[in-house]
Structures are given as C-alpha cells and as structure tokens.
Computed example of a mutant assay.
Amino acid sequence: MTETATAAAGQVSDEELLARFPGQPVDHDSAAHYRGRLAHRLLINRCGDCGTWHQPPRPVCPACWSSNVVATEVAGTGTVHLAIFLHQGPPAPGVDYATPHPVVTVDLDEQPGLRFTSTVVDADRERVRVGDRVALEWIDRGGAPLPVFRVVEAAGSAGGESA
C-alpha cells in the first residue's frame, strides 16, 4: 500500500470507520487496528515498556500493567496452532458453507503464544493442518479489507512440497 493510502486510512473519522466495518467490535481500544486494516497492515498491540505483544487489543499490558500500548504492525507470518472447519454459520458475504469453511488460529512469529484467528484462502480444505506455515494475505469481505492467511509450507513437508 502506498504512503498516501496509509495516511488516508489514518485520517478516517470514527463514523466512517464504523460504517466500513458494520457489526465489528470497533471501539476505542481497537480503532487503530481497523484503521490499519484499511491500509492492509495487520496491527497488534505491543507494550512500549516491556515489549510484550498482546491480542485482542486491550488498554493495558497484561504482563506489566502499563498503559503504554501501541498498535504495531506484524509481519503476518506464523504457524497454524488450531484449525476447525465450519459446516454452517451465519450468512457472511463471500463464504460458501457448501463445503467446510476453514478457520485457523495462527501463532504469529513475533512472540510465542501471540495468536490471531482468521481463515485460510486458496488451500485444499482437507490439507489445512496444525503446523502449517502461513503468510498474511488480504481479501475484501463485505466491502472491507479482511486479513487472511495462505499456506506457504504444509506441516511435515520439505521445501514446500505437500506431505
């Protein structure tokens, strides 16, 4: 994303932000994260005092109780920690429940135990496994950017080949 687009995302009013992400839990603690999504930047809170990352967004660090927390961009790479497959769910634009829809929780590389939950795109659903290496991608869902993951190396494979 260009610097201009990133700056424009930062200047979105609170009202515009709520309109772009209807039904999402946008509040004082998470607004910076949703503004980051508009610029295709995955932001996670990091303590400015002790350096601990934490997700979901909270106003204080869970490690040292400092209120010096800053929404900081992560690389978006990690390892699938948990994978489930939804066979039904509430209607969501762009989600086909005719086949199980993958939902994964990813251990992000920035810190052990730092996890983010989303979906996997462009992967054979039967092959999504715990231990897969994934990288951040972006899709449009309901008119808003959504961070998702793409498998870059299947668990148990060498050189990216499927096991």
Rank of each mutant, 00 (worst) to 15 (best):
T4I: 15
A5P: 04
A9H: 00
G10I: 05
Q11E: 12
Q11T: 10
V12M: 04
D14N: 11
L17K: 06
R20S: 09
F21W: 09
P22H: 11
G23P: 00
Q24C: 04
P25M: 01
P25Q: 04
P25H: 06
H28T: 15
H28A: 15
A31T: 02
A32R: 11
H33G: 13
G36N: 06
G36R: 05
R37A: 12
L38D: 00
L38S: 06
R41V: 07
L42D: 00
L42F: 08
L42S: 05
L42H: 06
I44N: 02
N45W: 02
C47A: 02
C50I: 08
G51L: 00
H54Y: 08
P57E: 03
R58V: 05
C61I: 01
P62S: 00
A63G: 13
A63Q: 08
A63N: 14
N68H: 04
N68K: 13
A71E: 06
A71D: 14
T72Y: 09
A75K: 15
G76L: 01
T77Y: 05
T77C: 14
G78I: 04
T79H: 00
V80T: 01
L82E: 04
A83P: 07
I84E: 11
I84M: 10
F85H: 13
H87M: 06
G89C: 02
A92C: 14
P93T: 09
V95R: 01
V95E: 14
D96H: 02
D96Q: 07
D96W: 09
A98H: 13
A98W: 12
T99K: 14
T99W: 12
T99D: 10
V103E: 00
V103Y: 08
V104S: 05
V104R: 01
V106P: 07
V106G: 02
D107I: 04
L108N: 01
L108C: 02
D109F: 09
E110K: 11
E110C: 07
Q111H: 10
P112V: 08
R115E: 07
R115Y: 07
F116Y: 15
S118A: 05
T119V: 07
T119F: 09
T119I: 13
V121M: 02
V121A: 02
V121F: 00
V121G: 00
D122A: 13
A123F: 01
D124N: 07
D124F: 08
E126P: 09
E126T: 13
R127A: 12
V128G: 03
V128Y: 02
V130L: 08
D132I: 09
R133W: 08
A135L: 05
A135R: 12
L136F: 13
W138L: 12
I139A: 01
R141G: 12
G142M: 08
G143D: 04
G143W: 04
A144K: 06
P145G: 14
P145W: 10
P145L: 10
P145A: 10
L146D: 06
F149P: 04
F149L: 03
F149E: 00
V151N: 05
V152T: 15
V152M: 13
G156H: 08
S157N: 02
A158L: 11
G159T: 03
G159E: 05
G160I: 10
G160E: 14
E161R: 13
E161P: 09
E161C: 00
E161L: 12
S162Y: 15
A163T: 15
